[in-house]
């Protein structure tokens, strides 16, 4: 199961859509047009897109506080996402969620959890529902290396294994949870090895290689759909930005500048894949056209977001309940 033909271009396009969307978002955040906290996935696009492309449109997904990339990788429109960053009425969550919570149900995302590890049981439950209902939907569950240390990870993987649930646990292992490295927080730093404890397959993949991630995820999806149960995939990747934009970490740096620069230079998933595509015979012009289209889509998203109104104060209680309760 390889990325082939136009799917390769789609992989390139989606990674680029995430990158440009976040670069623009970061600029607006620094300019004060986006409130709250801003966590980018810059550097991690290969892992996110590779895995998402292995899904069908009707498959489900859960994600994390580093939420921007997940819906974009699954094919979401950018406008409502950009508007959400600004807390606008036209935002995908109507301005109730913001940057950390890009749960775009139009592409099958049921949750982007600001609580680390909070989405893992939800993904498991999502897959549980598919099994109970007898449908062949699969759920892809994104989480970070830090989340692996939550009890929810352990408890969920056990249940998923026990009931052979159609779920793929995709760890975006960027090496750090905020300022805490995997080495200083995991008794067993090889996260994939944990799978054996639950009796499920666990594998490591180069998260900077979008096609490698695709291949591994596509295999896991096939297994899951065939009723053979969950897989744990650890995509080794790297976050190019600070944990969140503007976070000041006092004292000893937790990672060296050289380490960050080397990753940006040699391990950028988009640059790496661009080179691969050219080597595979895709012409430069095709790629620049995509780059141009993506830039345009981001510009349009910003225009849409700026033009969208703020939610009106009287709408504050909206979306609390299905059936309205008087306040």
């Amino acid at each position: 199961m390889q990325l082939k033909g136009d799917r390769r271009l789609e992989a390139f396009r989606r990674m680029l859509r995430i990158r440009r969307f976040e670069e623009e978002g970061r600029r607006l955040f620094n300019g004060g047009q986006i409130p709250g906290w801003f966590h980018t996935t810059v550097g991690q696009e290969g892992a996110i897109v590779g895995a998402s492309l292995a899904l069908r449109d009707d498959d489900a997904m859960t994600g994390t506080h580093r939420s921007h990339g997940h819906p974009i990788a699954k094919g979401a429109h950018l406008q409502a996402l950009m508007a959400e960053l600004m807390g606008k009425e036209g935002g995908v969550c109507k301005g109730r969620g913001g940057s950390m919570h890009f749960a775009d149900s139009s592409v099958g995302i049921i949750s982007e959890s600001g609580i680390v590890g909070g989405g893992i049981p939800l993904a498991t439950g999502c897959a549980f529902s598919a099994k109970v209902r007898g449908v062949d939907q699969v759920t892809l569950c994104f989480f970070g290396d830090g989340a692996v240390n939550q009890g929810t990870f352990h408890e969920s993987l056990n249940m998923a294994s026990l009931w052979r649930l159609p779920v793929i646990y995709l760890c975006e292992n960027n090496g750090y949870a905020m300022t805490t490295s995997v080495a200083t927080s995991h008794g067993q730093p090889d996260i994939a090895l944990r799978a054996a404890g639950y009796g499920i397959p666990g594998e490591i993949v180069d998260g900077q290689d979008v096609s490698a991630v695709y291949q591994s995820a596509a295999y896991a999806v096939t297994r899951a759909r065939a009723g053979q149960g969950p897989t744990l995939i650890v995509a080794n990747t790297y976050r190019f930005d600070e944990h969140n934009i503007g976070l000041a970490v006092s004292g000893e740096p937790y990672r060296q500048v050289e380490e960050v620069e080397a990753h940006k230079r040699d391990r950028d998933p988009i640059l790496l894949y661009r080179t691969v595509l050219l080597e595979e015979g895709v012409n430069e012009e095709t790629l620049t056209t995509i780059e141009h289209e993506v830039a345009q889509a981001v510009t349009q998203a910003v225009q849409f977001a700026l033009a969208s109104p703020m939610p009106r104060p009287e709408t504050l209680p909206d979306y609390m309940f299905v059936s309205t309760i008087a306040h």
Partner: peptide, 15 residues
């Protein structure tokens, strides 16, 4: 109020 804290500054302002 008995409502969750909204993200949007417009809603949070007088929350």
């Amino acid at each position: 109020p008995d409502i969750h804290v909204p993200f949007s500054p417009a809603l949070e302002k007088d929350f």
